[in-house]
């Protein structure tokens, strides 16, 4: 089974983020492999271990995004593809998906695994567009995946449980962090990753035109800071005040 996992390099969740003038994320900060993608890679590796085949990591980003691919290769993925092109800077979800689709199409994968959303952009739009462009059924929000021949069954996370979905390969799935606990790479794996192939492709190589952006980010705003709560001193009426407060908040 050939498994493609899409991966993204994102700013380190443990560092502070800086926005550029065009509202894109400054990437000169510490960057890491998206923690959500580590779970996707882990699931891909487990499926490969159970069913055989190959795990290919596909990413789009600046050249340094190779480090993120390398990290997945250390965990045990077989090879990587990095789409890098000046004209992709600040790409929206649609352009990102078109570039990824062109690279993934050539791989003829049985299974494409994506995170539900990236840690930084959080649009959650790339996997569905990708599935559409590749003409694949998509099984989203998977917290468990089972493969039996050409049948792929997933448990889709819902608010109060899960639903079971099934499709026939080739198929695209998006996975939640609950899918699998990412493994620690061994030193042997880390050293082996140094000699694994990471193919670098430009938009020209893929025959993709960057075109006009379908979306631009107009502005960004911080979430409203949490307001201080009311402090009630007990002067004998505290219970009444609290009951009134809860009633006003319509929780009673």
């Amino acid at each position: 089974m050939k498994i493609v996992v899409t991966v993204k390099q994102v700013p380190d969740p443990n560092s502070s983020h800086v926005l550029e003038a065009d509202n894109t994320l400054g990437r000169d900060k510490e960057v890491v492999l998206d923690p959500g993608d580590e779970c996707g890679i882990e699931e891909g590796l487990q499926l490969k271990e159970a069913h055989g085949g190959e795990v290919v990591l596909v990413s789009m980003g600046p050249e340094r995004a190779k480090d993120a691919i390398r990290k997945g290769l250390s965990m045990g993925a077989d090879r990587g593809i990095l789409i890098t092109d000046e004209s992709l800077s600040g790409a929206d979800a649609y352009l990102t998906a078109r570039a990824l689709a062109a690279a993934i199409k050539a791989e003829q994968a049985d299974l494409v695994i994506c995170g539900t959303e990236s840690y930084d952009g959080s649009t959650g739009m790339v996997p569905p567009i990708l599935a559409e462009l590749l003409g694949l059924p998509q099984l989203t929000f998977a917290k468990k995946v089972e493969v039996d021949g050409s049948k792929v069954k997933v448990n889709r996370q819902t608010a109060d449980g899960h639903m079971v979905l099934e499709a026939t390969t080739p198929v695209l799935i998006t996975v939640t962090a609950a899918i699998a606990e990412p493994r620690y790479a061994s030193l042997k794996g880390i050293m082996a990753a140094r000699s694994k192939e990471v193919k670098q492709l430009s938009l020209g190589d893929l025959g993709v035109e960057s075109g006009e952006r379908a979306e631009t980010i107009e502005s960004m705003a911080d979430a409203e800071a949490r307001k201080a709560g009311a402090v009630i001193e007990d002067d004998g009426t505290a219970v009444d005040q609290i009951v009134k407060f809860l009633a006003d908040a319509k929780v009673l």
């Binding site: 620690y184 790479a185 061994s186 030193l187 880390i190 050293m191 140094r194």
Partner: peptide, 14 residues
């Protein structure tokens, strides 16, 4: 950089 990558994995494990 292989040592540094190993370091991160060890740190996370610990």
């Amino acid at each position: 950089d292989a040592h540094e990558e190993l370091r991160l994995h060890i740190r996370r494990f610990l």
